[in-house]
């Protein structure tokens, strides 16, 4: 019997960012620029600030894009800040983001990179 091999990654964090429809690409570009390796986008409808803005509600789209990005804990804060700035989240109605610690993650890691890492710190 061959044992299944899984490479589990630790020191990972999840950044979730909710922005208006059409804004996700810009946020992802900022995150990628700061070193994030990938992103998942899904669509949602939001509720919150828009209902409290009165007439200005017309400027806020109900439809949202939710961006999920998994990052390493070292880069987490930097990616978080870049995304926050790119999404202009300090402007009312633009969106919301948060970060959570993850226990572990798994995905494809190129073998040569894995080998290089293991050679450096066995």
């Amino acid at each position: 019997m061959t044992k299944q091999r899984i490479t589990a990654l630790t020191d990972v964090a999840l950044i979730t960012c909710v922005v208006q429809k059409g804004m996700a690409d810009e946020v992802i570009r900022a995150a990628t620029g700061a070193g994030a390796q990938g992103a998942t986008v899904f669509y949602a409808r939001g509720h919150g600030m828009r209902e409290r803005l009165g007439a200005l509600a017309v400027a806020v789209d109900v439809e949202k894009e939710v961006v999920n990005i998994v990052v390493s804990s070292d880069q987490a804060d930097r990616v978080f800040e870049r995304m926050c700035a790119a999404g202009d989240l300090s402007t009312p109605g633009m969106g919301f983001m948060y970060m959570t610690r993850l226990d572990k993650a798994a995905t494809y890691v190129p073998p040569e990179i894995l080998a290089a890492v293991e050679k450096k710190e066995p």
């Binding site: 209902e51 409290r52 803005l53 200005l56 806020v60 202009d88 402007t91 009312p92």
Partner: peptide
């Protein structure tokens, strides 16, 4: 929730 009163600057930014 109460209505939010925005500063003029925030209205422009929005």
């Amino acid at each position: 929730p109460p209505q939010v009163r925005l500063r003029a600057r925030d209205v422009i930014r929005l």
